[in-house]
């Protein structure tokens, strides 16, 4: 097969996959500021969403990703609008980083009109097909085979795009992980598998349930190229994702990124995570992606006030969005019967 040309147009406005040079010593400041902004937007969005639970604005479950923000931001910085994304139950970060409208997302969490899924999905099923976000998922690991299929279609249609598929460490114990990775490699498909390893599967420590050296070794056993990185280091994620996406777009086949990170809160927005060892949590949370990024900005002589300004802007944006969403109207009841199927769908008034 002829190697496809690298298509620069498809690279995200954030700077593009080719622009990073010696990031550690000489980071691109505007890019770093942008990363910081995106991470804070995710954190502010989820903080507002968690607070909204107490205000009884969120009918269902949410699974916050606070503490894990560098992974979606670093990865999605290398995705263009036409690249695709499949997410999980813990998907707000991925969705925001891919460029979804934050207010539509908040409206979805609140079950209001104007939500990304018209109030039919909620947090666990947020999707925005207009930006290539093919859905969060309520079933752990189910997105992995779907991602392989999306990539299969891209290949059949001759597109030079990638599919990014996020999942947790716990998901690597499900069958679809094996089947999806094997599929992607066998058919040589453009998938970037991103394992966000936060050490926990709901309330169970994943290491107690996982045989062998872990997710990366499993991926490598199928012949996938991959690396394990500190997922709380935005530069490390940015660099690894750059290389991975470039390799995939140059015909290198599926790629695996194992990102070590930590979930600061509980499994859901109301879980106090009392089952977690306090010392473990404290140590892990010291490696906070947002704080690390702020440090990098300081080192690059960005003033405290500009750093603060970015934070305040993100907080204000999400506060406004929560306020708007909380005043949004409820959906029209009749939509419950819409979008079931074309033939034989039920009408209102059963």
């Amino acid at each position: 097969m002829q190697k496809p040309e690298y298509d620069a147009e498809l690279v995200h406005a954030l700077g593009g996959a080719g622009l990073l040079t010696d990031q550690k010593n000489n980071p691109d400041i505007e890019r770093l500021k942008d990363h910081y902004r995106q991470m804070l937007r995710i954190r502010a969005f989820e903080s507002e969403a968690v607070r909204a639970i107490a205000d009884a604005l969120v009918p269902g479950f949410i699974h916050p990703s606070i503490g894990q923000e560098a992974v979606p931001v670093g990865v999605c910085a290398h995705l263009g609008r036409d690249d695709l994304l499949l997410s999980t139950h813990r998907g707000h970060g991925h969705t925001l980083a891919k460029g979804a409208d934050a207010e539509a997302m908040m409206r979805e969490l609140f079950g209001r009109e104007g939500g990304t899924c018209r109030g039919k999905g909620g947090s666990m099923h947020i999707a925005d097909f207009s930006i290539g976000m093919l859905g969060a998922n309520g079933v752990v690991a189910a997105n992995i085979t779907i991602a392989a299929g999306a990539a299969h279609a891209l290949k059949l249609r001759g597109k030079n795009n990638v599919v990014a598929c996020f999942f947790g460490d716990g998901a690597t114990n499900r069958g679809p992980f094996l089947e999806g990775l094997n599929w992607a490699k066998t058919f040589d498909l453009p998938v970037l598998f991103v394992c966000e390893d936060n050490q926990w599967s709901a309330t169970t420590k994943t290491s107690a349930m996982l045989a062998g050296p872990g997710p990366l070794a499993r991926a490598q056993s199928f012949g996938l190229a991959g690396t394990s990185i500190n997922g709380n280091d935005i530069l490390a994620v940015d660099e690894a994702a750059k290389n991975a996406v470039a390799s995939i777009k140059n015909g290198g086949g599926p790629h695996f990124l194992h990102c070590r990170t930590y979930r600061h809160g509980g499994h859901t927005g109301t879980d106090p995570a009392a089952y977690r060892d306090a010392a473990e949590a404290e140590t892990a949370m010291r490696d906070d992606p947002v704080a690390t990024c702020a440090q990098l900005l300081r080192k690059a002589d960005i003033s405290e006030s500009s750093i603060r300004a970015i934070e305040e802007e993100a907080t204000a944006e999400m506060r406004r969005i929560k306020d708007n969403a909380s005043h949004a109207p409820w959906p029209d009841k009749r939509i419950v019967y819409e979008d079931v199927q074309d033939l034989g769908a039920v009408e209102a008034g059963r």
Binding site: G119, P331, I335, R350
Partner: peptide, 16 residues
Amino acid sequence: SPRVPIPYAPLLENEL
């Protein structure tokens, strides 16, 4: 329930 997947918003779910 009518033959509809279960929606999220309380007002929609209650319809079923």
